[in-house]
Design a protein around this nucleic acid. Structure first.
Lengths: 223, 223, 223, 223
DNA sequence: GATGAATGAGCATTCATTCAT
DNA sequence: GATGAATGAATGCTCATTCAT
């Protein structure tokens, strides 16, 4: 009765470009709604393609998500340069700062992905969770070893390197996440860099030393 | 109309206890599978009650989850004591350490809830996300103001207090999460406490000063 | 933990009275919400008894409903007196009017039941529908035969008696239903009686006779 | 995640047609079982489509039902022509008969819908009940005003027009319903028309006048 | 008798995925 | 390649009914 549009090529776009078109739409929707609240419909609607087209380019919902995360993970990894300690022309401090600056910039330039990576990439499904954990472990491992090296060279204070790695990464993650959420401008990257760097160098507490556990911790469950 | 199996009271448990039974089962399942992977069936199966019984005690899936989070949030909040600066018998350092110790212990004693709070409580649904964000903001606000006070008293270094708050909380969250995930014993709480405390006091980087971005300077080893 | 009220006799009420208590509550709720919107919970809440108590007095939800309908049907049936034509002291006109008056009064004095009978008693379930249909058929049959007798005696005009029965009953039902819904006072019963009676005696159309189908009925589905 | 059976287009039917297919199946099932006894499963089974397909075309169960009722209400409304009193070529009697005939035919040609409208459309849910009541009120209002006009013109006997409207509509509804239920042929429409028309013109009671309630009077046979 | 916690069949609804055109 | 109608497994939730106390 009603005229039916005949299916078939309606848009002539190179294969890679169409993929990116979907990827980009998916990224925005994932960032806005989160993985679980996002339906394939949301994605294809946002991308302006038919539902079936989606499955021409991606195995399933998880595959797009995974692809997005992978690309961003690579970008982040590439933003970090391995620190060398024997080049007198490149002081370690500078290298550390450069790395921080680079990561901050990457995150601020891809806010949606930062948001997704830091909050949406959890609880997707068991397999994916493992994947994220693996990536994360790699980063932790890298930093842990750098810190250990730093201790040997005397440029990192004593302490369990892995613990220090967690502390640093956690602090960094949180700061970046908030910067992205609160919509900080890319220009403010330099400010964050300084704060972060100072934090790593000196902490912030300036209290007198103490000798030991001040007193037994009272259970405050009941009173 | 159709023949039904026999319903009726099969187990006698006080009302509050049954609620806790379901709550406890839900907690374990949520921690294991995450919010979205968890079905009501998983919960009631784990709790050993019928489907309908669940709805006798909770509005819906979100309600149990919400209840769990609320209880834990209260516990955590109660674990933190407000810091006073004018009592010569209670040095600030001790109070800070007590707070850290207290939170660490609470989290280590409720590993599943810690895991849930730090990873599973995101992307549940828009309303819940807002709720969590509000709780989180409260904590951040609290710490921010404490840090500002500390700066006035000269016991906290310069820097944007809110940024310092994010850094501290992020670092703390990450460390706690990993401690819980990796199954650290409660005895190790003291170790974490020290590491965390040192981190807040001195950071860990011990590199020479620099003047500007990427500008090589003379290395000046310092210990 | 919390004190549990011990079960057992909490109210000393004769068996029949408790039954009536539930019946009455059920009637009100059914009238308000309709059969399908009414839950057992609604009934016991309104009756102020425990859920299990309900099943002590009634087989199931349908049983209360059925009981209510049965009682009302009996009342209605008893309101109608068989018409005799050979008693010079009791003109047929009077008897007809008495019957109408009696039914109108019964319905106006039990508004909720009238409402239920006329609207709620349909679609309960196949078996119940059949039951209602049977009752209804009985009434129709009764009236049909009366009308046939009336025709023999010359006090009812020609026409298919069953059709006349349907017409009368339909007219009557509708009027009564509206009277009940619109909340007419019992005093207005006399007015309705007159209108109904006049309608049965003379109809209301006062147009000139016609000879046959005026013209072919045009299909107006499409234009 | 888990393996699924093969979905996909299996039947090629224009969109509007599929809608009608479901609508028609729903109509039959509703007529047979009533609204509340009908499940979505019944409908899709009868329509020969998958469960999900139903929701592609209708919001929910009520939506199909509502659609059916709406369509039929429109049909019925269109079957009635407004009566004009100043056209000598179209006697009022003819117009009244035409209207009756037209409605009778419409109902006999859509028996299932007639049955549904007259019995099943009550107690669906509060909102729907209100909708039906509104439609019904419109019809009553229309007839009431026509009757009032008729009284002015002297072609309708005295009496409260609204009451007369209820009586007529009730009578008509019941007759139609029975005609549909008992499976009267469409050819018998003419017979029903005559009976209905006569009823409206003269009623059927041919008894002597009475003076007051239950007061015997002299019998005065009249034909 | 009375209670109300527990039960689970039954039903509506969603949404990722397929495939005929 | 593209389309989008069709699919049905999965799941949340309701509520009539039972029975141990």
């Amino acid at each position: 009765m009603a005229a039916r549009r005949k299916p078939g090529r309606s848009n002539t776009v190179p294969k890679t470009e169409r993929r990116l078109q979907i990827l980009s739409a998916a990224r925005d929707v994932f960032a806005k709604r989160g993985y679980h609240q996002t339906t394939i419909d949301d994605i294809v609607l946002s991308a302006g393609v038919a539902r079936g087209t989606f499955y021409l380019y991606f195995e399933d919902k998880r595959a797009v998500f995974s692809d997005l995360i992978d690309r961003f993970a690579v970008k982040l990894t590439m933003a970090i340069e391995h620190i060398v300690t024997d080049d007198p022309l490149r002081p370690v401090a500078n290298q550390v700062q450069d790395n921080i600056r680079s990561v901050v910039r990457t995150c601020l330039s891809e806010r949606t992905m930062t948001k997704i990576l830091f909050t949406g990439a959890v609880g997707v499904d068991p397999e994916f969770d493992r994947k994220i954990a693996t990536f994360y472990d790699t980063v932790v491992q890298l930093l842990t070893e750098s810190l250990r090296d730093g201790q040997t060279l005397g440029i990192v204070a004593d302490g369990e390197p892995r613990v220090l790695a967690y502390l640093s990464i956690g602090a960094f993650k949180e700061l970046l996440y908030q910067a992205v959420i609160l919509g900080l401008s890319e220009e403010s990257a330099e400010v964050l860099l300084q704060q972060m760097y100072n934090f790593l160098r000196q902490g912030y507490l300036r209290v007198s030393e103490i000798m030991g556990p001040s007193k037994p911790v009272r259970s405050r469950r009941k009173n």
